[in-house]
Amino acid sequence: MLDAHFTKRRRDFTVSFSLKLGPGESLGLFGASGVGKSTVLACIAGIEDPDDGYIDLGDVHFFPPPLPLHRRSIGYLTQEPSLFPHLSVRDNITFGLSKIEQADPERAEWIATLKNRLKLAPLWNAPASRISGGQARRVGLARMLARRPPLVLLDEPFVGLDRQLVRELIDDLVFWSRNIGFSMIAVDHRADVLTRLCPQMAVVLEQGQVIQRGSWADLCSAPATPLLQSLLAPL
């Protein structure tokens, strides 16, 4: 269970956020660009420290005090997949796994599943610096999931990808979320991406404040603000 309640001052406004998210649940964090969605994820991931409040994942206290990143056991994927350019695709995906973990048959099978499902076999030994943007997103996704994190944070990881690839990646994520049971918080400014990825629950931010939370049906039928209504409207 992720239990978070924190604030983070930004130059133009303060982000206030609270959330309880059970194992296997998913949440879409929705809103216009620059309203603090990424700040929320960065605080939970530990990339930024909140100014006050608390963040717990099960029995593990993320904040306060800030828990070092390497003890957090979470997956965090952003628009830039941040692959290690000096390593191969394979070494990126197994990065952080000990030799014992890599030799574990169950883990090896899981990595083989990721490799096949995300169509990474042709790239497996290629340097990460030589693959395309779309391929890099798939590698980033595989790397994040290789450790089977209990919580996955997605910060607009599908921006700039073609719709077919986005659909495939979302379907894979939803499939694995159900099978592995990880919780997921996804940020996007496109409602169609989030409704497919996190169909259960949405939280809407405006100027750092939560202005509405509930099901996507609730949001569509009674949007809290005109801005939200316009964001939800089809083009």
Binding site: A45, G46, I47, P68, L69, H70, R72, S73, I74, G75, Y76, T78, E80, S82, F84, F95, G96, R143, R147
Partner: peptide
């Protein structure tokens, strides 16, 4: 971000 990502992947 590469260093942070490596830390999130469990490296001290």
């Amino acid at each position: 971000m590469l260093q942070k990502q490596a830390a999130l992947l469990g490296l001290t």
